[in-house]
């Protein structure tokens, strides 16, 4: 049973069991432009909700990636560190940033589902 949720800062989290995979949305990558660098957290780091977890940079912009929910980093996507263009080509797929073990799964209830996020992005235009 997987669940996909979104934040107002344009992160997504796909949850399977007690682990969630985190990335930035397709909308976010379009706003940034060609991504040239990502800085990923160390495995084992404890992330707090809404606090900086990673950094993503394009040529003329830089942005923090915040932890959608609290948890411990259990894996990072080395492929995206080596080839940041994955974020442009597959932001919501192969361009994921990290996997975290959720500290408090009930936090997910506060995030948007796909329909709510799409409506939110629509409102930003």
């Amino acid at each position: 049973m997987t669940m996909l949720k979104f934040t107002k800062d344009h992160e997504w989290i796909r949850v399977e069991g007690d682990t969630g995979t985190v990335g930035i949305t397709d909308y976010a990558q379009q706003q940034l432009g060609d991504v040239v660098f990502v800085e990923l957290p160390e495995v084992g780091r404890k992330l707090e909700t809404g606090k900086e977890a990673a950094v993503v940079e394009s040529v003329k912009a830089a942005s923090e990636v915040y932890a959608p929910v609290a948890g411990e980093v259990v894996a990072v996507n080395d492929a995206v560190a080596g080839d940041p263009s994955l974020i442009n080509s597959a932001a919501e797929g192969d361009g994921w940033f990290m996997r975290i073990r959720l500290a408090n799964p009930s936090e997910l209830d506060g995030l948007m589902d796909r329909a709510a996020y799409d409506a939110y992005v629509e409102g930003l235009a």
Binding site: V36, F37, E57, S58, V59, K60, A61, A62
Partner: peptide, 12 residues
């Protein structure tokens, strides 16, 4: 690598 610099990163 100008994302290191003040005109993009500002206070960071």
């Amino acid at each position: 690598l100008s994302t290191r610099e003040q005109h993009i990163r500002r206070e960071k």
